[in-house]
Design a protein around this nucleic acid. Structure first.
Length: 850
RNA sequence: GCGGGCGUGAUGGAAUGGUAGACAUACCGGACUUAAAAUCCGGAGGCCUUAGCGCCGUGCGGGUUCAAGUCCCGCCGCCCGCACCA
C-alpha cells in the first residue's frame, strides 16, 4: 500500500480547485457569508501566526460553504509602513520594489496552504488603484467636516532631523542616532473620531458577536466620565489668565483638595517659561516619551509656581498651583485639583511635597474621627466627612450637591468627558498614502481635484539622508493650485497606515471599482460575518474601522447596514515555541533556531557541535529570539494539511498554541492513518461484517457530526479535532461490513474537509464521492442516533462520588431515586437510617445527603 | 501607572454549577520484526509499612451551594494593549 504523499496530492487538488474556480465569489440568490482574517503586512515571509490565522478563517469559510452559503473569503496586503523605508535605507532598495517582491514571495508561500480564497479580489494598499480611492474619500471627509488640522507633538530626533515613531524611541533616545529625543510641535491632520465618542460607545452594546473582553477594552478606551468642569479664581498668574479651569470626576472630594496642578504643556505653564527654572522644569518633563505609559510610570515630579487658587467655597482657603509631570494635556483641561486622600497619584505627589492629606470620604465601617490615610489612597464608597455642608452625604449625593452649587455660582458646570482623542493621521514619511491636498499661498489649503487622483508617490526618491524624501523632491511638490492655478506646494505628509486598514474590508466587495465602493456590492456582501485576528488589534484598528464605517456612510460610500462592519469578531492566540540558547563569549545568550538543536530526553544539544543548549521559556515566535519554525519547511516536509491540522488541534483557538516538533509529527501520523484506513477499505471491497457493529458505527458517525459541527460553530476547533480523532479510532476498530466502513469514511472526509482539504478530497475520491468534497454538503446529525438507551449515572454521597448505576435513558426521577437507594454503597452509608435529602438530576447525577 | 486577559497531570488541553483529566503528546509495558523504524494492543493525576467502599487534588486564602475547575470576595504569578509598530 502506498503511503499518502502530500507533495503529489496537495498540488493536484489545488489545481482542481483552481480549474473549477471553486472559491470565486459572485453575487447570487444564496445567502452570503463573508469571512475575513486580518490581512498581513508583507514582511517577506509567512510565519506560523499567519498559518494559524488563515487556517481558522479557512475552516469557517469551507464549513459555511458546505452549509450552503455563498462565501466571500478574500486576501490582500497591508502594504504601507515603516519597515519598507528601513529596508530602503539599509539595503538600498526602493520601498515599493521591496514591498511588491515580499508580496510575491508571501503569495507563493500562502498558496500551497490550500486556502479557499478568492484570489481574483487580491489587492495591496500600496496599489495606486487602492490608495487613490482612499484619497478620494479623504476629500469627501474634508467636505463633510470630518477632517481638520491642528498642532500636535511628535518625537523629534535632533541629529537625524527626523520624526520618530514611539517604537523608534528607546530610553528617550533615537534608535539610530542615540541622541536624546525632543518633543516638537507640528501642524498635522486629524479625523474627528471624537465627534463619534458617544455613538461608538453605545453601539458597543449591540456588538453581540464580539468577545466581551474586546467590548470592555473599547469601552474603557473611549472612557466616558461624568464630571465637573469649573474655574478656580487664580492669584499671581501672568496677565491674560483669568481663572484656572479644571476638570474632575470627583467633585465630592473638593474639601479634601490640597493643591492644584497643571500639565507642562498647559498654556499657563508655557507662559511662565520666562522664569528659567520653570523653563528648565518643563523641558525636563518633556524629555519623557509621548506615550501614556511613559508619562504615568515616570516618578511624580512637580514645581511650585508660587501662583495660588482660591477654594470655591471658602475665600480664605488657598491652594498652591504646581506644574506636574503626571497631568495629561490631552485629557480634560490639562489641569486638576489634587485630593491626596482619595487618589493614589495625588497621594504620592502630596507625600513627596509635604502637602496636607485630609480624608473626606469615610468607609461605612470606619470611625470618622480616627479615620486616616496611610500609604494608600481610599477610593471606595462611604460617607462624607470634614466637608462642611456635605458631611454625612453619600459620594453620589455630594457630587450632585457640589455640581449644583458651582453651577449656581456660575463657576462651572457638569460635563461629560471622553478619554478618546481625535485621530492624528499625519505621518512625515514617504511610504504611505499621500494626503491629497495642496497648499496655495493665496487660497490656503485646497483639496486636489478628484480627476487628478490618484496623487501617486514619485518613484525617483532617495533614502540617503533621513527625513521625508517627499519634502526634498525636486518636482513632485511643485504643483498648480487646483483652485486658482497659481504656483503651490503639495502636502508632503502621508496617512497613518491605520487608515489603509480601516476600510479594506469594504473594498474587497468591489476591489476593481473606480469608486471606493459599489453600493449594490456592499449591500449584498457587507457586513463581514466573521472577522478573525490578533487581540493586539482589539482597540485601535477595530475602533478606527468602526469610525470609518460611519464616515463612509456619511459620505455615501457604505449602506446603512454597514455602520458596524464586523458582525462577529474572534481574537486568536499566538503561536509560541521554546527558546534555545548557548552561552556566548560575553556571557550573554546566543539564540539558536529549533533547526540547530537536537532534543533528547529533555536535554538539548547543538546538532553541529554537540554543545549543551539551554531550553528557555515558551514565548511568541520572534526573529530576535530565533524560536521560529518556518511554515514553508513544515509544508515541504509534511504538507499543508499537517500544518493546518496541527494548528487547529490541542489549544483552543483563542489561547496560545505551542509549536512542537512531536506535535507536528503526531499530526502527520494521524493523517497517514486516515489514508491507511481508506486504502484498506478500498482493498476489502464488499467484505461482510457484523450488523450490530454497523449500527454502533452509524451512531459514532452522527455523534462525530454533532461534535465537529458544534466545535466549528463555537470556535472550538480543538474539540472538533478531538472528535475526529475519536471517530477515526472507532472506524479503525470497527468490525462493521465494509460498505458501512466506507460510508463512515466518506462522512469523515466531509467533516475533515475544512481542516485538511487535500486529504479530504483524496479520501472522498477513493470512496467514489461525487465531484469535489469542497462542494459537498455538510451532513446533519440525526438526534435519534445521538442518544443511548441506557446511561451510567454517578452516585454521590454528600457530594463525593462513591459508585455508579446503569439506568434506562428515559427513567423517571422517582425510579432513579428508588434504584439509587437500593445501591449497596448507599445502603451502607445510610446505615439503616433515612437520607436527609436525595438530589436526582436526570441524565446527570444522583446525590444522597446523609 | 492604567485597561484587558490567562492560570487544570510530565506536556497541550476536556468538563450547560453535576463522575475532574475526554482527545493528543511524551513516557512505560506487550505483539509483530534477526533488529530497528512503522504499525497494532494495553497502562498511567498524586499519596500510602493500611492498596481501600482509603486520603489528597484544577495558582494561593476565604465564602455561597446538596454539589465549585466553573459563581462571589481578597491575593500571587504570567501575558497583551496604551493612541507614530503593524
Amino acid at each position: 500500500m502506498e503511503r499518502y504523499n502530500a507533495k503529489v496530492v496537495e498540488p493536484k487538488w489545488q489545481k482542481a480547485w483552481e480549474d473549477a474556480q471553486t472559491f470565486m465569489a459572485e453575487r447570487d440568490a444564496r445567502e452570503k457569508y463573508y469571512v475575513l482574517e486580518m490581512f498581513p503586512y508583507p514582511s517577506g515571509r509567512i510565519h506560523m501566526g499567519h498559518v494559524r490565522n488563515y487556517t481558522m478563517g479557512d475552516v469557517v469559510a469551507r464549513y459555511k460553504s458546505a452549509r450552503g452559503f455563498n462565501v466571500l473569503h478574500p486576501m490582500g496586503w497591508d502594504a504601507f509602513g515603516m519597515p519598507a523605508e528601513n529596508a530602503a535605507m539599509e539595503k538600498k532598495v526602493h520601498p515599493g520594489d521591496w514591498t511588491y517582491q515580499n508580496i510575491a514571495d508571501m503569495r507563493d508561500q500562502l498558496k500551497p496552504m490550500g486556502l479557499s480564497i478568492d484570489w481574483s479580489r487580491e489587492f495591496a494598499t500600496c496599489d495606486p488603484e487602492y490608495y487613490g480611492q482612499q484619497q478620494s474619500m479623504f476629500i469627501d471627509m474634508m467636505e463633510a467636516g470630518l477632517v481638520y488640522r491642528k498642532n500636535a507633538v511628535v518625537n523629534w530626533d535632533p541629529v537625524d532631523m527626523t520624526v520618530l515613531a514611539n517604537e523608534q524611541v528607546i530610553d528617550g533616545k533615537g534608535w539610530r542616532s542615540g541622541a536624546p529625543v525632543e518633543r516638537k510641535e507640528l501642524t498635522q491632520w486629524f479625523f474627528r473620531i471624537s465627534d463619534y465618542s458617544e455613538e461608538l460607545l453605545t453601539a458597543i452594546d449591540d456588538l453581540k458577536g464580539w468577545p466581551e473582553k474586546v467590548r470592555l477594552m473599547q469601552q474603557n478606551w473611549i472612557g466616558r466620565s461624568q464630571g465637573l468642569r469649573f474655574a478656580f479664581e487664580m492669584t499671581g498668574a501672568p496677565d491674560g489668565f483669568g481663572g484656572l479651569e479644571v476638570y474632575t470626576t470627583r467633585p465630592d472630594t473638593l474639601f479634601g483638595a490640597s493643591f492644584a496642578a497643571i500639565s507642562c504643556d498647559h498654556p499657563l505653564a508655557k507662559a511662565l517659561e520666562d522664569n528659567p527654572e520653570i523653563a528648565a522644569f518643563n523641558a525636563e518633563c518633556r524629555k519623557t516619551g509621548t506615550s501614556e505609559e511613559d508619562l504615568e510610570k515616570a516618578e511624580k515630579k512637580g514645581f511650585d509656581t508660587g501662583i495660588v487658587v482660591t477654594h470655591p467655597f471658602h475665600p480664605d482657603w488657598q491652594l498652591p498651583v504646581y506644574i506636574a509631570n503626571f497631568i495629561l494635556m490631552g485629557y480634560g483641561t490639562g489641569a486638576i485639583f489634587g485630593c491626596p486622600a482619595h487618589d493614589q497619584r495625588d497621594l504620592d505627589f502630596a507625600r513627596k511635597y509635604g502637602l496636607t492629606v485630609t480624608p473626606v470620604v469615610c468607609p461605612e465601617d470606619a470611625d470618622a474621627d480616627s479615620f486616616t490615610i496611610g500609604d494608600e489612597a481610599y477610593v471606595g464608597p462611604g460617607r462624607m466627612i470634614n466637608s462642611r455642608f456635605l458631611d454625612g452625604k453619600t459620594i453620589e449625593d455630594a457630587k450632585t450637591e457640589v455640581t449644583k452649587r458651582i453651577a449656581e455660582m456660575k463657576a462651572g458646570s457638569a460635563e461629560t468627558q471622553y478619554r478618546l482623542r481625535d485621530w492624528g493621521v499625519s505621518r512625515q514619511r514617504y511610504w504611505g498614502c499621500p494626503i491629497p491636498v495642496v497648499h496655495c499661498p493665496s487660497c490656503g489649503v485646497v483639496p486636489e481635484k478628484k480627476e487628478n487622483l490618484p496623487v501617486v508617490l514619485p518613484k525617483d526618491v532617495s533614502f540617503d539622508t533621513p527625513g521625508n524624501p517627499l519634502d526634498r523632491h525636486p518636482t513632485w511638490r511643485n504643483v498648480a493650485c487646483p483652485k486658482c492655478g497659481a504656483d503651490a506646494l503639495r502636502e508632503t505628509d502621508t496617512m497613518d497606515t491605520f487608515v489603509d486598514s480601516s476600510w479594506y474590508f469594504a473594498r474587497f466587495t468591489a476591489p476593481r471599482a473606480e469608486t471606493p465602493t459599489v453600493m449594490e456590492e456592499a449591500e449584498y456582501w457587507m457586513n463581514v460575518d466573521q472577522y478573525i485576528g490578533g487581540i493586539e488589534h482589539a482597540i485601535l484598528h477595530l475602533l478606527y474601522s468602526r469610525f470609518f464605517a460611519r464616515a463612509m456612510q456619511k459620505t455615501g460610500h457604505l449602506p446603512e447596514k454597514a455602520i458596524e462592519p464586523f458582525n462577529a469578531l474572534f481574537t486568536q492566540g499566538m503561536v509560541t515555541h521554546e527558546t534555545y540558547s548557548t552561552k556566548g563569549k560575553d556571557g550573554r545568550p546566543v539564540w539558536r533556531t529549533p533547526d540547530e538543536v537536537r532534543l533528547e530526553d529533555g536535554t538539548a544539544r547543538l546538532i553541529e557541535t554537540g554543545e549543551a543548549v539551554d531550553i528557555g521559556p515558551v514565548i511568541k515566535m520572534s526573529k530576535s529570539k530565533k524560536n521560529v519554525v518556518d511554515p514553508e519547511d513544515i509544508i515541504d516536509q509534511y504538507g499543508a494539511d499537517t500544518a493546518r491540522w496541527f494548528v487547529m488541534s490541542d489549544s483552543p483557538p483563542e489561547r496560545d498554541v505551542e509549536w512542537t516538533a512531536s506535535g507536528a509529527e503526531a499530526a502527520w501520523k494521524h493523517l497517514q492513518r486516515v489514508w491507511r484506513l481508506t486504502a484498506e477499505a478500498v482493498e476489502k471491497g464488499d467484505l461482510a461484517g457484523d450488523a450490530l457493529e454497523a449500527e454502533a458505527l452509524l451512531k459514532a458517525t452522527h455523534k462525530c457530526i454533532d461534535e465537529v459541527t458544534n466545535g466549528i460553530e463555537g470556535f472550538a476547533f480543538n474539540k472538533s479535532v478531538a472528535a475526529l480523532y475519536q471517530f477515526t479510532n472507532t472506524i479503525a476498530k470497527s468490525d462493521a461490513p465494509n460498505s458501512d466502513i466506507k460510508d463512515a469514511l466518506q462522512t469523515l472526509a466531509v467533516l475533515m474537509q475544512p481542516m485538511t482539504p487535500h486529504l479530504a478530497e483524496e479520501v472522498w475520491a477513493a470512496m467514489d464521492g461525487a465531484g469535489l468534497v469542497a462542494n459537498a454538503e455538510w451532513p446533519t446529525a440525526d438526534p435519534k442516533l445521538l442518544v443511548d438507551d441506557e446511561i451510567v449515572l454517578p452516585i454521590q454521597i454528600n457530594g463525593k462520588r462513591r459508585d455508579e448505576i446503569r439506568v434506562a435513558a428515559d427513567a423517571s426521577k422517582d425510579d432513579i431515586e428508588a434504584l439509587a437507594l437500593k445501591n449497596l454503597v448507599v445502603q451502607k452509608a445510610l446505615d439503616g437510617g433515612n437520607p436527609k435529602k436525595v438530589i436526582v438530576v436526570p441524565g446527570r447525577i444522583i446525590n444522597v445527603v446523609v
